[in-house]
Nucleic acid binder design. Structure first.
Length: 152
DNA sequence: GCCAACGTTGGC
DNA sequence: GCCAACGTTGGC
């Protein structure tokens, strides 16, 4: 069992969108950063993923999802009408990956970034120390600290 | 291979 | 809207 954190702008995709999706399952796509992509490819079914809302009025941990299946080729990279189109991605060896996530739980209230910054367990975390990374692993200690701090 | 220019992320 | 962080691009 691995632990992860993914960031999403709730205007684009919120934890409620996952909860309201058919089978409460949604494709997580549009990742165009190699490090984030590599993490996506390491994800295994049933891995637990904290769902973080970024660039919004209420920044922080908004819910919990789980990995529904292994990473696969992100179809948007081959869609010329998509903002995520990548003309240089070879069809025979797709550059970008997507993953399906399944809803697990939604926080009664978002665990704010302000509180996350005060948690000693997270002082070394990628979340607080690595700018501009939208997919990252969490240690089990980090995951537990977050999980027990959220009001579910 | 270096590095300046440029674009994007994301908090404030 | 601003700006720091930082990944990517492309000239040399």
């Amino acid at each position: 069992m691995n632990y992860w954190l993914i960031k999403s702008e709730p205007d684009e995709c919120s934890i409620s969108d996952v909860a309201n999706a058919p089978q409460q399952q949604l494709r997580w796509d549009g990742i165009r950063n190699y490090q984030a992509r590599n993490f996506l490819r390491e994800m295994k079914p049933a891995d637990q993923v904290m769902f973080y809302h970024s660039s919004c009025a209420n920044i922080g941990i908004a819910g919990l999802v789980e990995v529904a299946g292994s990473a696969y080729s992100d179809p948007l990279q081959f869609d010329p009408n998509s903002a995520y189109y990548d003309a240089r991605s070879p069809i025979e060896n797709p550059r970008w990956s997507a993953i399906d996530v399944r809803f697990v739980n939604q926080a009664k209230q978002v665990l704010s970034l302000k509180i996350l910054k005060k948690m000693p367990e997270l002082s070394e975390s990628a979340l607080l120390n690595r700018a501009r990374l939208s997919v990252m692993p969490l240690t089990s200690d980090e995951w537990q600290a977050i999980h027990s701090a959220v009001d579910w």
